[in-house]
């Protein structure tokens, strides 16, 4: 894949940003994959999960970065240890550029929630929990979001079967406790 239009326009800005980011996070920035060297459209920053929220906050508020828009939050199942990668696709409303932050997470581990940085992360993290079974520390309401709350298993894991049933004879009831003040 060629970097194309993105790389031409933002290549130098990305190089500067990656240098600054590495200087700030040191060994906690595990790996950087740049377009050109790796088949990706935007740079990928791998951050250790202990400092992921700090990294996201840094990218959001630091002048010269200004990634102030959480375009997407999702995960992938890599089938090797550590098993999951949480993917944050960031975009800058002011400067238009984009970047991707990833954070590796083993099956038994949990990731700090990004809600303090972006309230929008709330449902996206619930979806990652629903689909992959990755827990988010400090999430206020980590329930399933797409599947029924009584569902067993996490469908987007690679070892999840493609066919099967789980039947529930009664509809799901509401949660009045969520409406308490």
């Amino acid at each position: 894949m060629n970097g194309g239009w993105f790389l031409e326009k933002w290549g130098s800005a990305w190089n500067e940003q990656v240098e600054k980011f590495k200087a700030r996070f040191g060994a906690d920035c595990e790996e950087v994959r740049m377009p050109g060297a790796y088949p990706t459209d935007v740079p990928i920053l791998y951050v250790k999960k202990a400092r992921i929220v700090e990294a996201l906050q840094f990218l959001k508020s630091e002048p010269g970065f200004e990634y102030d828009f959480l375009a997407d939050l999702t995960a992938t199942d890599e089938e090797v240890e550590p098993r999951f990668e949480i993917v944050y696709n960031l975009r800058s409303i002011t400067r238009h550029w984009r970047i991707r932050v990833k954070c590796r997470c083993a099956e038994s581990e949990s990731v700090p929630t990004a809600i303090p940085v972006w309230p929008a992360a709330n449902w996206a993290e619930r979806e990652v929990w629903d689909m992959y079974g990755v827990k988010f520390e400090g999430h206020p309401d980590l329930r399933r979001i797409l599947m029924d709350e009584r569902w067993e298993g996490h469908p987007l894991r690679k070892d999840y079967p493609l066919k099967g049933y789980q039947l529930f004879p009664t509809p799901m009831s509401a949660h009045p406790e969520l409406l308490q003040d």
């Binding site: 894949m1 790796y38 088949p39 990706t40 459209d41 935007v42 990928i44 375009a71 997407d72 991707r100």
Partner: peptide
């Protein structure tokens, strides 16, 4: 499709 990843918007 060759290996790689892209977020196309």
């Amino acid at each position: 499709v060759p290996a790689g990843e892209a977020y196309t918007t």
